[in-house]
Amino acid sequence: MTRILAIANQKGGVAKTTTTASVGAALAAQDLSVLVVDLDPQGCLTFSLGHDPDQITASVHDVLIGAEDITDVLLDTDDQVTLLPATIDLAGAEALLLMRPGREYALKRALAEVSQDYDVVLIDCPPSLGVLTLNGLTAADEVAIPLQCETLAHRGVGQLLRTVTEVQQITNPELKILGTVATLFDARTTHSRDVLADVADRYDMPVLNPPIPRTVRFAEASASGASVMRGRKNKGATAYRELAENLREYWGGAELATYELTE
């Protein structure tokens, strides 16, 4: 059965795109077939997987508005994941979709045509709570929330959780919150642990294991148009491989491994 996971947080700079690309590449390396969906008009996921958004003629925008069939838009990547790319045109999809009935279901309908071809679908939601994010949450089985381990990290999380609750009540009653993915984590400081403990307690959400450490490799990978999973071994890639293995085992029936904040 295909598992569809949305990666969402309306706050920018929390490593949503890095998490989507890295977990996708790690799962593909474990011989799973993976589709990643770029729902951000900035096209950062598309670029980070080796495609220039400015050179793409058809994208998820065209799929959502019904101008293209999803099978004609999908792209291969060097990370062995299939990509549903985004371009700046996607910024206009919000306005176009707002005028259409059932606008929250556009992505769900499109994925229904191809999801049986993949073991996992990962959706990189934009840093907003607009129609595009609603499409991602409506199409997903589960949602994970990347959260940077810095002061005020919790800002906006409550609003996102309220949106998730509304989606559960109206368009996707089966949607489940897996928990938070701790990013920019520095194990040498108590500050990172304090932030995680605050968020976990405030919103009663588990932290998925392991936390993702801060490393310059993420920025270097994004700038080069390649995921952090390729190239030299680094602690960030190792953590994402462990997170991907955790998710795979959970989808296989094991208990989801969470990070023990009391250690």
Rank of each mutant, 00 (worst) to 15 (best):
D62N: 13
L134Y: 13
L247E: 01
K16M: 12
Q148C: 10
G253F: 10
V131N: 01
L132E: 04
A197M: 10
G253V: 08
Y118D: 00
L64H: 03
E255G: 09
L132I: 12
I177L: 15
I177N: 02
F218E: 03
V63C: 05
Q55E: 06
Y250N: 06
P127W: 03
K108N: 07
V157W: 10
T151S: 09
G253Q: 07
A58W: 04
V37Q: 01
A25C: 01
S59F: 03
L175T: 11
D79P: 03
A153N: 13
Y240G: 00
M205L: 15
M99Y: 05
L83T: 02
H191L: 15
V199T: 09
R232T: 01
L160W: 13
V14I: 11
T151A: 10
L160K: 15
A110L: 03
K16H: 06
P126S: 09
H61P: 01
A239C: 00
V36K: 04
D52S: 06
A8M: 09
P127T: 11
E150Q: 14
V73L: 02
Y250P: 02
S224T: 05
P85A: 11
A244Q: 08
L98H: 06
R217W: 01
T262C: 01
V157S: 07
W251M: 04
K235H: 08
T262Y: 08
A140L: 12
